[in-house]
Amino acid sequence: MQKALLVAALVLPLVVLGTRFAFLRTPQAEQGLRAGTFDPPREVPDFSLEGSNGRKLSPRDYPGKVVIVEFGYTNCQDVCPVTLAHLTGAWKKMGSAARDVQLIYITVDPAHDYPERLREHLTAFNPSFLGATGTPEELQAVQKAYGVVARQVASKNPALPYAMDHSSSLYLVDRQGKLRGLVPFGTPVDDIVHDVEFLLKEGA
């Protein structure tokens, strides 16, 4: 009996460890984007908004570049600063390749986000980032075209009159102007870099 218990005590941990490690999968080679991908990709929904560079801004103004479209507002306390910080990190990691990438940050709060304010806010993260604003009607049409949801809610910060609940994903547009990917909020910098570089190489 004691012998049987001893054997069981030796064999059982081996069986448990064996099944733990024997079936661990090796990571598969990555194919394509790490972000959500559209199939088939459609033309990026176009718009013509007032840019923080003082000119009219459209995602189709950048043929040959990878365009990232983000929706947010400068008074955002939680989502936007994190995403913009991630994008700043991604730009640094990409180095010179970032010259072929353009961020367009479309405000969901046109009452506060004038072009000058957008420029000042975005330049603090990266001077190449561009903001876009317009009338509430123009911006609602753009939100609808992208499927973005934005609504005014009470602010937790008493210094602010209100906050905006808004979609927090990034939209990846390839060099041919096709909407290719949807990057969820919180995606690590490395994953963003991977996807942008994938699109850059694909269209090179």
């Binding site: 959500g36 991908t37 559209f38 199939d39 088939p40 459609r42 609808k144 075209a145 992208y146 499927g147 973005v148 949801v149 979609s167 927090s168 994903s169 939209y171 949807l182």
Partner: peptide, 11 residues
């Protein structure tokens, strides 16, 4: 989610 899926399109 935060996007629009056209008829026949997949995400």
């Amino acid at each position: 989610g935060p996007t629009l899926l056209m008829p026949g399109q997949s995400l």
